[in-house]
Design a protein around this nucleic acid. Sequence first.
DNA 1: GCATGATGTAACAGCACTTATATAAGTACT
DNA 2: AGTACTTATATAAGTGCTGTTACATCATGC
Lengths: 166, 166
Amino acid sequence: MTVDNTPDPTERSRWRPLRLLQAAMDADIARIYAEMPVEGLKPSFVMELIRLHAHGPMTITELAESVQRTHSAISQKVAAMRAAGLVRTTAGADARSKKVTLTAKASRVVDRLAAEWRATEAAIAEIEAEIPYPLSRVVTDIEELLRRKSFHDRIAEKLAEDVAWG
Amino acid sequence: MTVDNTPDPTERSRWRPLRLLQAAMDADIARIYAEMPVEGLKPSFVMELIRLHAHGPMTITELAESVQRTHSAISQKVAAMRAAGLVRTTAGADARSKKVTLTAKASRVVDRLAAEWRATEAAIAEIEAEIPYPLSRVVTDIEELLRRKSFHDRIAEKLAEDVAWG
DNA sequence: GCATGATGTAACAGCACTTATATAAGTACT
DNA sequence: AGTACTTATATAAGTGCTGTTACATCATGC
């Protein structure tokens, strides 16, 4: 028997606990950023703000490439961040492009945001050190297995066994 | 030094690989269901359909409790599933409530959906068996740590250290 | 003066909800 | 039977997020 045949396979799942853990941890991360008393700061802005701080002003296109999004998506996000008073766009050397720059308001908090990001990483590192086998190693272990045979193919294989024998 | 102080902490992350792995695996799961040639079947319907099959007809409220959603959300999902020809609603003993029942179309595929669900679980079980320390144990290990001190508090603590010493 | 590059923007799409209101049916009390 | 309440469901509208596609605008370099 390779598979369980209880009537409702959706009740117990090996997959959901990880989803729930991830969601709970994401919520805690979001809370950390939400606790910053900066009007208009959304958690989804944090990565871009830190990047702009670290790399200096970037154009829309550069920022889009940096975070792997289309220029359109970033143009819209920049517009939202501008509306929140977090960035300013100024003409670059080339008047076609615009440099996106942090405002004073954003500059005042971006160090703190970066510190929060590092603290989050440090908290994860701490957790990893306290368990017998770190999560990151499990992730790379699984990635290695899936490189050899994709998850999709593994499911399809199990399904074939189940249908054939069940 | 408890934290890294490189200028851009967002470039390397211990957290993102897990997110990406999870997203990739979710996409593969979705693909499995998407490959079923049933018009109108959405991956988000699968759990409800399997549950209805296993438990027999349920009212909107029962189904909502079963999947931990509001009755309104389920009412809308049931309407969508009905539009897709997957369920039928019939008056129950009490004319206020409606029993949600699988149609013949859904009945023809629900065994396969349950088999796919089990195959997914089996594929995860297989992966877990092939790595030195199973993911599910890492998850319970982390849950245990977080019960003792929440992730939020851990981040806040790291942050305090960083601000104090950095 | 025309192709190319950078950006802006409108419109739409999809998901997965919530909130508030509506409707109908049952139940309890008098 | 009438009134008031509760229960069950439906539905409209809105929220929040994250995007995509298609088109428009304007600058530049040749």
